[in-house]
């Protein structure tokens, strides 16, 4: 009566195979998605480099035309979103892809340098173009404990002031142009984070208020925004007053 229970070996093997197939498929899909992300970043970079080329050409033409003909398209808006995506890739990609990521980062840094140069030229030539450029040099957590806080502050400022262009550079990257930039502003890997504004380099963490002190243009924008708001409220108030007074007049006949 008491027979030993048996194990159906075939079923165990069969289950293993099905599970392995599902697993393999999943890894495969994952690989495709990672590849897609990588290609996405690459295509954004291509777009930016096209934008830049276009800007350069526009800029060369500018010598013969006026500032007004420069439209917003010269400011490559994709740079910010590219930065977010790159840092995501850096944090989430597997080891094997790190080489590709480093390549993308170098390319991105180069694009930033080019954009920055262009912006400076633009600012010199066309004084009414309101663009505030800041260079930001950062390092690893080990070398720079304040860099994380600094990037939080800069991200927030970038949200608040669309006019603010922050070019961020990983000082660890081995790139000729980046090294030259570092030499120009005297940036050392041991003295980070470093912010460069108006050719002046500022070392160490800066709070939002400190940065506003550093960049008076931001304060100017604040003042202008406050004025605008005040004007809006005043016009709203006067509208309200107008409507209440008409309300009062319409109520009068009842008395």
């Amino acid at each position: 009566m008491n027979t030993r229970q048996s194990i159906d070996r075939n079923k165990y093997v069969m289950t293993f195979m099905i599970t392995a197939i599902i697993f393999g498929l999943m890894l495969y899909i994952n690989g495709i998605l990672d590849q897609k992300r990588y290609e996405d970043v690459k295509s954004i970079q291509d777009q930016i480099s096209l934008d830049l080329l276009s800007s350069e050409t526009q800029f060369n033409l500018l010598k013969e035309t006026s500032c007004k003909s420069i439209d917003d398209s010269v400011l490559s808006k994709e740079l910010n979103s590219l930065a977010t995506k790159l840092s995501y890739l850096e944090a989430n990609q597997s080891e094997s892809n790190q080489g590709e990521i480093a390549y993308l980062k170098k390319y991105y840094s180069l694009l930033q340098v080019k954009d920055w140069i262009l912006m400076r030229q633009l600012a010199e030539k066309c004084k009414d173009q309101k663009v505030i450029s800041v260079l930001y040099f950062y390092g690893d957590k080990e070398d720079c404990s304040e860099c994380e806080d600094m990037s939080y502050v800069l991200t927030r400022l970038r949200q608040q002031y669309p006019e603010l262009r922050i070019y961020s550079f990983d000082t660890k990257l081995d790139l000729g142009a980046l090294n030259t930039l570092k030499t120009i502003f005297g940036i050392e890997s041991t003295k980070l984070p470093a912010l460069v504004y108006n050719g002046q380099s500022n070392i160490g963490f800066k709070s939002i208020d400190e940065i506003k002190e550093l960049i008076p243009d931001l304060k100017q924008i604040d003042i202008e925004n406050a004025k605008k708001k005040e004007l809006e409220e005043m016009s709203k108030d006067s509208e309200n007053k107008a409507s209440t007074s008409t309300g009062a007049t319409s109520a009068k006949p009842r008395n």
Partner: peptide
């Protein structure tokens, strides 16, 4: 927490 400490809290942003 670290982020809010340096940037302040602004629910919209």
């Amino acid at each position: 927490y670290n982020r809010f400490k340096v940037t302040g809290f602004d629910w919209r942003l």
